[in-house]
Computed example of a mutant assay.
Amino acid sequence: MDTPGHRRLIDARRASDGSGVRLQRVLAREGMGALDPLLLLDDFAIADRHDTPPGFPEHPHRGFETLTLMLDGAMAHADHLGNRDLVETGEVAWMRAGRGVIHAEQPVLRNGRAHGLQLWLNLPARDKLSDPAYRRIPAAQIPRLAPTPGCRVRVIAGDLELAGTQTHGPLTEAACAPLLLDLALDPGGEFDLPATPGWRRLLYVHQGRVAIADDGIRRHQLAELDDTEGLRLTAGTEGAGALLIAARPLAEPLAHYGPFVMNTQAEIDQAIADYEAGRLTD
């Protein structure tokens, strides 16, 4: 639907993945590709009612990148490349599946909780079969800004110019060169987002509520924002936490099956055959 400041709202849907991880999943009704270059977004939260927290046992990927932002708790990462890592609160893990990666992720509770966001970002056709890679970005390396009272911004990736000063995010490897902002707003806090013509701009609210003009975006909703004008985001009475994702669409054909995202069905068939034959990561 069209409303001032944004083009449509998408409600996250309850889903389950891995070994019983319950999450909120954002996927456009038209399927992957409709929010190009974002493929999907998962919002997972695990509480201490579990004796053994559910997780994501070893599984394959090909043809895209993942980005995991830990809002609370931690995530243990292991992959076939030999990476063994622990992503703590406030940290970001980036992984390029490329031609193939096999990895496992296990939430680790801190103070009885683990909460995070994971994005799937598409790779352009030229990079679909590139070398897989992994990197953790410590929280201390992510620039923090306070452009207005009650507004805190962490620049994860891309360049953000505020008041004549440009800040560069530490994640430079993502192929779609996104702007990724982790926003925290106190009750009534405001953030002015400049126009980005030609970019797809998406705002996911994981806590509280955000208003643009007179229209609200509540928790577990993703809004596709108008890219042609500057927008003012205002938090509701409970404050808000949100992730801004902006990038130029790849505008390439897309084929998807389970953990594989390619450009054609033939490439999907090849990915399945390679995995079944044990050569996905060759």
Score class of each variant (00 low, 15 high):
101 V>L: 13
98 G>A: 14
182 D>K: 14
191 F>G: 05
141 Q>G: 10
152 R>L: 10
94 W>S: 10
96 R>N: 03
101 V>I: 15
201 R>L: 05
201 R>K: 12
170 P>D: 14
143 P>N: 10
149 P>S: 11
131 D>M: 09
137 I>K: 02
94 W>H: 11
94 W>K: 14
149 P>N: 02
152 R>C: 06
172 T>S: 12
153 V>C: 05
203 L>K: 11
134 Y>M: 12
161 E>P: 00
171 L>P: 01
161 E>Y: 00
157 A>K: 08
194 P>W: 13
135 R>S: 03
140 A>E: 04
200 R>D: 04
174 A>P: 00
103 H>F: 04
160 L>N: 02
156 I>E: 07
110 R>E: 04
129 L>F: 07
97 A>Y: 01
134 Y>T: 13
123 L>P: 01
152 R>T: 11
158 G>I: 06
150 G>A: 09
194 P>Q: 14
161 E>R: 00
188 G>N: 05
141 Q>K: 15
168 H>I: 13
114 A>V: 01
170 P>R: 15
104 A>S: 14
177 A>V: 05
95 M>R: 09
125 A>K: 06
206 H>C: 06
104 A>E: 03
187 P>M: 12
137 I>A: 05
125 A>T: 06
100 G>H: 06
205 V>F: 09
106 Q>T: 07
172 T>V: 11
199 W>A: 14
113 R>E: 04
173 E>F: 10
159 D>S: 14
115 H>P: 04
156 I>H: 07
178 P>N: 15
166 Q>K: 15
199 W>C: 10
105 E>P: 00
144 R>K: 08
102 I>K: 11
153 V>A: 08
160 L>E: 01
96 R>E: 02
197 P>A: 13
154 R>S: 11
186 D>G: 09
156 I>L: 13
202 L>H: 09
205 V>N: 06
135 R>G: 02
198 G>R: 11
197 P>C: 14
144 R>V: 12
144 R>L: 11
196 T>N: 03
182 D>V: 11
171 L>H: 08
151 C>E: 00
146 A>V: 07
197 P>R: 13
157 A>I: 08
199 W>V: 02
120 W>N: 08
97 A>N: 03
183 L>S: 07
173 E>M: 14
135 R>I: 04
168 H>A: 14
162 L>M: 07
121 L>F: 11
145 L>C: 00
101 V>Q: 06
192 D>V: 15
168 H>M: 06
183 L>K: 14
114 A>G: 09
201 R>A: 09
111 N>I: 00
132 P>M: 15
136 R>Y: 01
127 D>T: 05
128 K>M: 10
143 P>K: 13
137 I>Q: 05
203 L>R: 10
113 R>A: 08
204 Y>G: 06
102 I>L: 13
124 P>S: 12
120 W>T: 10
162 L>K: 10
105 E>Q: 09
137 I>L: 13
142 I>V: 09
201 R>Q: 08
147 P>S: 15
140 A>N: 03
98 G>P: 00
115 H>D: 00
199 W>G: 07
143 P>Y: 07
148 T>A: 14
194 P>Y: 15
135 R>E: 03
134 Y>N: 10
102 I>V: 14
173 E>L: 15
108 V>G: 04
195 A>N: 03
123 L>N: 06
128 K>S: 08
149 P>E: 04
128 K>Q: 09
202 L>R: 14
98 G>W: 05
137 I>Y: 10
96 R>G: 03
185 L>Q: 00
106 Q>A: 12
